[in-house]
Amino acid sequence: MVEYLIDRHSGLSPYLQIVEQTKRALRLGVLLPGDQLPTAREVVEATAINPNTVLKAYRELEREGLVDSRRGVGTFVRRSLAKPQTAADSALRAELAAWMLRAREAGLEREDAAALISDALDSGFPETTTGGP
């Protein structure tokens, strides 16, 4: 199960927030194939957003082939976005953790590190731009 956290002041529409958060959960392996997404009722009761927003987000995920909705049963994860390289115990992650430690020792603040990473991301993955406000 995932729990969606909707930030009303992020400028990002609740619809996109649900899509993004689901994908993140799929990437991180929080959601695995066969897992059920919370029902619209559960989501709206917890987040107080419009039910149609949730359903629209679920439809978008379905369109992308990430989830299956079975009428009268619920919405289930079809495939994971998790890559073994992103798992908590992966080598890449360990390297990043070590880098973080070094950055701290070098006297960087959290923001400095984030800026550095973002910069490196942009040059390392030039084809994608990050969404956001």
């Binding site: 039910p51 359903l55 629209k56 439809r59 049963v73 919405t75």
Partner: peptide, 10 residues
């Protein structure tokens, strides 16, 4: 979108 069935749910 906005106007279609609330399909995914029970």
């Amino acid at each position: 979108g906005t106007a279609s069935p609330l399909a995914a749910d029970a």
